Amino acid sequence: MGRFDNKVAFITGGNSGIGKASALMIAKDGANIMLADLKEDRGVLKELEELGVTASFVKCDVSKPEDVEHAINETIKKFGSLDIALNNAGVGDQGMIHEKSIEQWHKVIEINLSGVFYCMKYEIEHMLKQKDGGKIINISSILGQVGEAGAAAYVAAKHGVVGLTQTAAIEYGAKNIRVNTIGPGYISTPLLKDIDKEKLHEIEERHAMKRLGHSEEVAKAFIWLASDDSSFLTGDYIPVDGGYLAQ
Rank of each mutant, 00 (worst) to 15 (best):
Y118A: 03
Q145A: 15
E110M: 08
W105I: 02
Q130H: 14
I136Y: 03
A152I: 05
G150S: 11
G133L: 11
I111S: 04
A152V: 12
L113V: 00
I142Q: 01
M120D: 10
L113Q: 04
L143S: 07
Q130M: 13
V108H: 06
S141F: 02
L128M: 14
Q104G: 09
I124R: 08
A153E: 09
Y118L: 03
N112V: 00
H126M: 08
A152W: 00
V146Y: 02
K107F: 08
A149E: 11
Q130D: 08
K129T: 06
G133W: 12
V155N: 05
I139V: 12
K107T: 12
K121M: 14
G134N: 01
K107G: 07
V116W: 02
K135P: 10
Q104A: 14
E123N: 04
V146E: 11
L143C: 12
G133I: 11
A151N: 10
L128V: 03
K135A: 15
I137W: 00
E110L: 10
W105F: 12
G115N: 03
Y154Q: 07
L128K: 14
H106F: 15
M127F: 04
I136F: 02
V146H: 03
E148N: 11
I124L: 11
E123G: 03
E148K: 13
H126K: 14
H106M: 14
I142F: 07
